[in-house]
Computed example of a mutant assay.
Amino acid sequence: MEYKLRTEKSNITTMVEFILLGFPDIPNSQWILFGIFLVLYLTIVMCNSVIVPITRIDPALQTPMYFFLNHFSILEICYVTLTIPRMLTDLLSQKGHISFIACATQMCLVLLLGGLECLLLAVMAYDRYVAICNPLHYGLIMSPQVCVQLVTASWVSGVPVVTGQTWQVFSLPFCQTCQIFSLPFCGSNLINHFFCDIPPILKLACGDTFLNEMLVFTVAVLFVLIPFLLILVSYGKIISTILKLPSATSRGKAFSTCSSHLMVVALFFGSAIVTYLRPKMQGSAETDKVLSLFYTIVTPVFNPVIYSLRNKDVMMALRKWPGKHLRSLKK
């Protein structure tokens, strides 16, 4: 089926919508893909929806680590909801039409929440660094006020802030999206992707995109590379401290937790770095889609397991929670 752009009477081509192709290289498999992504989406939402109330209600989980985990779970629900429901709808309808404004909005929100996830992961790594490497001062360093400030700074870092009488908006994801969608799109409107991501959109733009690529590089360094390096430094210090533990059992448990966290971090940051820090927006569309699947779907599936369900305190709270809930209903 051929898709054409609508044109005005002045013969100037105007982009009014895009077509998300999704996974055209896997023909006659939309129902299989729909089932797989639906199960993954429900798993992510259900697991994180349980973690949020547990970490707020259970007295044993009122610590900085679970405070950060609570916000991280909320973020994960919002993050996957930006892409998967839309992809499920497109798999069912086999159309993939998305308006210019909707595509720009999706890109902006994905960038904003993706950057927030990078910052929160860095904050969580710093929390573990203080807990393991400086345990005697942990309560003083990670006070409730500091925890709130760290989470607040992460949440508002990419949110558009309107200041001054000129109503100028300062937000790197917002500015980046505006610049990309201000480019002329005079060719195809077919996006060989399952959501509006930067590389496939830039491939459709006409003219010189060098400045846009430099802005993408700058934002990726600030929100992806720097947090990733901070996480590596934190875990380097943590591993160094663990090696000094006298008990082999303690070292084994600590290494198991660290390796699991680092695996998720490597999947998320590695795919994001390759996607957004390439010298040019080149590479096959299929490679871009595989990389995007890692940081939009695969790591959100692993995160509840790694950060919560393998945690002894969380599992104990989950076992106690139904009984407490039932007793409260009887009163």
Rank of each mutant, 00 (worst) to 15 (best):
D197G: 13
L172V: 05
I201V: 15
S250A: 11
K253H: 12
G252D: 03
F228T: 03
L150A: 04
T177C: 13
V224P: 01
L262K: 01
P200L: 15
V162T: 01
T209D: 09
W155K: 10
V146P: 07
A205Y: 05
T218L: 05
G187M: 04
L229S: 12
S240H: 11
V264G: 06
N189L: 01
V148F: 04
C178R: 15
H261D: 03
I141D: 08
K237I: 01
C175D: 14
F228P: 10
S260Y: 04
F255Q: 12
F268W: 10
I231S: 05
R251C: 09
P246K: 01
F228R: 01
G139D: 02
F185Y: 15
V264Q: 07
Q179K: 11
G187Q: 07
F185Q: 10
T152S: 13
S250Q: 13
F195M: 11
L229Y: 03
G164E: 09
P160V: 06
L245K: 08
A248G: 11
W155N: 04
S143M: 04
P227N: 11
P173S: 03
Q149W: 05
F174N: 11
P173H: 08
S250H: 14
L215A: 10
V219W: 03
I198K: 04
L140I: 00
R251L: 11
C258T: 14
L202F: 08
V169I: 15
V151Y: 06
I191S: 11
M214R: 09
V156M: 08
T257L: 13
I242K: 01
G270H: 06
G187S: 08
S234W: 03
D208Y: 01
P199E: 15
I239L: 08
P199V: 06
L190D: 14
L183H: 13
T177G: 14
L262V: 05
V148Y: 03
I226C: 03
F228N: 06
S259M: 10
A248R: 10
P160M: 00
A220M: 04
S171K: 09
V151Q: 05
L262T: 06
V156C: 02
L150Q: 15
L190S: 11
C196L: 05
F170Y: 09
F223L: 01
P246R: 00
S188F: 03
Q145S: 09
